[in-house]
């Protein structure tokens, strides 16, 4: 192993890692938001819309992220969608994650006992209030472990953005490798960065989960 190359490439890798984290955060937030809208539309929307969304879910889940990103970045301009690498990457991550998030939210909503929704209906609560006050908070609690889990999967999907030249960590690592032939060191650092990131997310997720479920667990 030869570590001196990092004196030169360290800052670049750190910048790349920053962009990786940025892409991950944005992709997760936007993907979750879109997924939540899909899940709600599938629960309350008219039937044709539900079919359309189901088709969307099947197509996106059924194709590799790499292919989706190619289609978006290189195929987009053919239909007038000309995006820079970073926005294209973020949009790609959002689209890619949304059906998984939608399914996680759906199962979270299904885990809310029907009786608790009925109790709200019985006192005359409007559907919007029921969603906001009962369905969302309780559904999110059930969905939380799966949401954290998929967010962790998404961290590693960000490396694919390197193929459309988003200057994230993988991109910088490849560049360093080809310029210095230090493949092993570069990829070792890549692994280390991701491991740290995933560890941090899962710890945060667990802490958050403990906090929001503390009142829900029966303690005698």
């Amino acid at each position: 192993m030869e570590w001196s190359v990092f004196q030169q490439y360290g800052p670049m890798l750190l910048r790349g890692f920053g962009i990786t984290i940025f892409c991950w955060i944005m992709g997760t937030i936007l993907g979750m938001a879109l997924g939540l809208m899909i899940a709600l539309a599938q629960r309350y929307g008219p039937r044709p819309l539900r079919w359309l969304l189901q088709a969307y879910i099947e197509v996106i889940r059924g194709t590799p992220f790499l292919v989706q990103l190619f289609v978006l970045y290189y195929g987009g301009p053919l239909v007038g969608l000309r995006l820079d690498a970073l926005p294209a990457g973020l949009l790609g991550l959002t689209i890619y994650g949304s059906p998984y998030f939608a399914e996680i939210f759906r199962s979270g909503f299904n885990a809310v006992p029907k009786g608790q929704i009925e109790a709200a209906r019985a006192i005359g609560m409007a559907e919007v209030s029921i969603i906001r006050r009962i369905l969302l908070p309780l559904g999110l609690v059930s969905a939380l472990p799966a949401l954290v889990n998929f967010s962790i999967i998404l961290t590693k999907e960000t490396v694919i953005l390197s193929i459309i030249t988003v200057p994230e960590l993988m991109y910088q690592v490849s560049r360093m490798s080809t310029e210095t032939f230090r493949y092993l060191e570069a990829n070792f650092v890549l692994a280390l960065f991701f491991w740290g990131l995933v560890e941090a997310i899962s710890r945060l997720g667990r802490r958050f989960e403990t906090r929001i479920t503390q009142h829900l667990i029966e303690r005698v």
């Binding site: 009786g115 608790q116 109790a119 209906r121 019985a122 005359g124 908070p137 309780l138 009142h215």
Partner: peptide, 17 residues
């Protein structure tokens, strides 16, 4: 109409949060 009708369920159905 439901505002004037109270209901109590077998499983209580309180909101746990």
């Amino acid at each position: 109409m439901r505002r004037g009708i109270g209901m109590v369920f077998q499983q209580f159905n309180l909101w746990p949060h």
